[in-house]
């Protein structure tokens, strides 16, 4: 508890000057800040304070969750020098890359065209969103039956019927990440499509009409009317997709447990292992902070790049 008190007094000294400044700012736009308040409170309790605790924990030694002595960067060093850390980081990047390929472009295409189809559109939308509404246990069972590497696996039966060689699927260290990402894209695509479709309702149809009169074909219309309308959202959704792909853990845990031989292990699984299997909250926190730093740097670069490309247009 000692170090917490230290933080407490420290912050009081630091914040005394800024405190009045903040009060001033809030006073000026009291209506806006009042409307922000509920959300800010929710974030304080369920996000910001826990994150600060996590960061503090990562510099201490813990027994269970009790903070012990200050160890500086020891947890970080111990985590980074772990024999499998590099493999895990490389895997995590691989997940992100494949998520980008499977998870970013297809929803855009599906949304743009699905928005145009009038026949059975209610069904079609529900269909794309369907995997989201099926509980995870059923999905997990589905993939075990599909990906079973024996000849009785559903996909292997399909391959066999088509005259192809059967595959080892998730047992194959070279394919495992792609396959896991594919299953996630399959499951997650619906929600992205729904968001894009909602966004597409904002396109002014007069613009399409004008473009048609000018003789623009469908793909030209997509390029000059649809995509510019969506671009802001697309940029954000892509970033969110990539951030989420860095945090993958549910699927690999249930599908492969990180195997074969660490081939599908991710950083978040490492956190899960440290915290829940080995009861090392300090090391789990250190990995969490490292992952956050990685994502932070990545996001800043992403935004910088997007800003400059916007200016260039």
């Amino acid at each position: 508890m000692k170090q917490e008190i230290a933080v407490n007094t420290n912050s009081k000294i630091k914040s005394s000057g800024i405190c009045s400044k903040i009060i001033k700012t809030v006073k000026k736009d009291w209506a806006g800040w009042l409307m922000l308040a509920p959300c800010v409170l929710a974030f304080l309790i369920f996000s910001w304070q826990p994150i600060v605790t996590t960061i503090i924990t990562s510099f201490y030694e813990t027994t269970g969750f009790e903070v012990g002595k200050f160890v500086g960067l020891d947890n970080y060093i111990s985590v980074v020098t772990d024999s499998h850390f590099i493999t895990t980081v490389v895997n995590t990047f691989e997940y992100a890359l494949w998520s980008f390929i499977f998870g970013c472009i297809p929803p855009i295409i599906i949304a743009v065209f699905l928005n145009e189809i009038t026949f059975m559109k209610g069904y079609l939308r529900a269909a794309v969103y369907m995997p989201n509404m099926i509980p995870g246990v059923a999905i997990a069972l589905m993939w075990t039956i599909m990906f079973d590497p024996s000849e009785g696996g559903l996909l292997n039966m399909l391959l066999g019927a088509l005259g192809f060689e059967t595959s080892m699927w998730l047992n194959d260290p070279d394919k495992v990440i792609e396959l896991i990402v594919l299953t996630m894209a399959w499951r997650g695509i619906g929600s992205t499509v729904i968001i894009y479709i909602a966004n597409l309702q904002g396109v002014n149809h007069d613009l399409y009409e004008a473009a048609t009169l000018d003789g623009a074909g469908i793909f030209k219309r997509i390029r000059h009317v649809t995509l510019p309308h969506m671009s802001g959202l697309i940029k954000v959704m892509m970033l969110l997709n990539i951030i989420n792909s860095f945090k993958i853990y549910d699927e690999p845990i249930s599908m492969t447990g990180g195997g074969p031989s660490y081939a599908s292990q991710t950083l978040t699984m490492l956190i899960q292992d440290y915290a829940f299997t080995y009861f090392r909250a300090d090391k789990a926190a250190a990995v969490g902070v490292l992952l956050a730093l990685l994502l932070g740097v990545f996001s800043i670069v992403y935004f910088k790049y997007n800003m400059s490309s916007e200016e260039g247009e």
Partner: peptide, 10 residues
């Protein structure tokens, strides 16, 4: 962040 930590640490 400092204020948050301060408020909650107690």
């Amino acid at each position: 962040i400092a204020i948050i930590a301060g408020v909650f640490a107690g």
